[in-house]
Amino acid sequence: MSNSELEKKVNQLLHTETFNDNVINGLQVEGRKQIKKVITGVTACYDLLNEAIRLDADAIVVHHGYFWKNEPAVIKGMKRQRLRALLMNDINLFAWHMPLDVHPKFGNNVKLAELLDIEIKGNIMNPLVLWGTTQNPVSADRFKNRLSVALKREPLHCYANNAPLLIECIALCSGGGQRFIDKAADFGVDAFITGEISEYTVHSAREQGLHFFAAGHHATERGGIQALGDWLSMQYNLEVIFIDIDNPA
């Protein structure tokens, strides 16, 4: 398929036009017109670009791309190195940020819930923060272990002395959603899962009686881009390879 067709089809799938995002969604760097082999990954870091070059890919599709609002516009240093690699090798770069976080079928939040056997019941802060329930109440230690196994990394767990002994009602927001912890606490969940943690998050969890799990920005956002890649492969007979560049954050 052509690069313009891929952009159009994914924009339609994710309803990109409905979002006021802080980054360009869709085709960010134009490469060769025809696409047969696609590399997917969470972030368009230089290591991912090198893998795409090594595998002679026609396109890279990621969740975290380039050209964020308020970033310096000058092309130098790391930005120059990345863009040079793409342009010299005629590789397309596509990125979908918020549309891929919140999609009801392919989104990072939904895929995280599926991975953890959480049944989504609704949203707390539409469309970014979802809530749901576990099939059976579970202890905090067992739920932490479930997170560790599912995401292949140990989450950071903060909690109040009066936090529930068993976890059943859970709010979640992939990536950098720690700023929504107070919304989750006001809603009355037993636990809140996101990717990152800030200094104030610890105190919010301790003082508002809930469990907080920081499970990794990268780790909580693998699911969406993998699901999108699977869709591209099945719908358009593209060769799609997901490459997981390790990131402890």
Rank of each mutant, 00 (worst) to 15 (best):
L116P: 00
S233W: 02
N108S: 12
Y236P: 06
H64N: 07
G176V: 03
A205W: 03
F19Q: 04
N89L: 07
I197H: 02
C169G: 10
I243H: 10
C158N: 14
S233Q: 07
Y236N: 07
L116Q: 02
R84C: 14
W131V: 01
H217E: 10
K76C: 13
P72Y: 03
A214M: 07
R142N: 15
F187S: 01
P137G: 04
E114K: 11
L172I: 09
I39W: 06
A171L: 09
K105T: 15
W96S: 02
I120G: 01
A171Q: 05
K33F: 09
G175F: 02
G107E: 06
N237R: 11
I245L: 12
N247H: 08
G122W: 05
Y66Q: 14
G224N: 01
A73I: 14
E71W: 10
D47S: 15
L166F: 13
N50V: 09
L232T: 01
I60T: 13
G224W: 00
M98N: 06
I39N: 09
I181G: 02
V102M: 08
A73Q: 13
D190H: 11
Q135E: 12
G41I: 13
V138D: 12
F106T: 04
G31W: 02
D47I: 11
V110T: 04
L49M: 15
Y200G: 12
K69R: 11
R54M: 10
D141F: 11
A205H: 02
Q12R: 11
Q226T: 10
A163Y: 03
I39H: 08
M1H: 06
P99L: 02
A184S: 05
G176T: 04
S204W: 01
L147S: 06
A184I: 06
Y236D: 03
F187M: 03
R142A: 14
A73K: 13
A95P: 15
D246G: 05
H157G: 07
E114V: 08
M125L: 15
L48C: 12
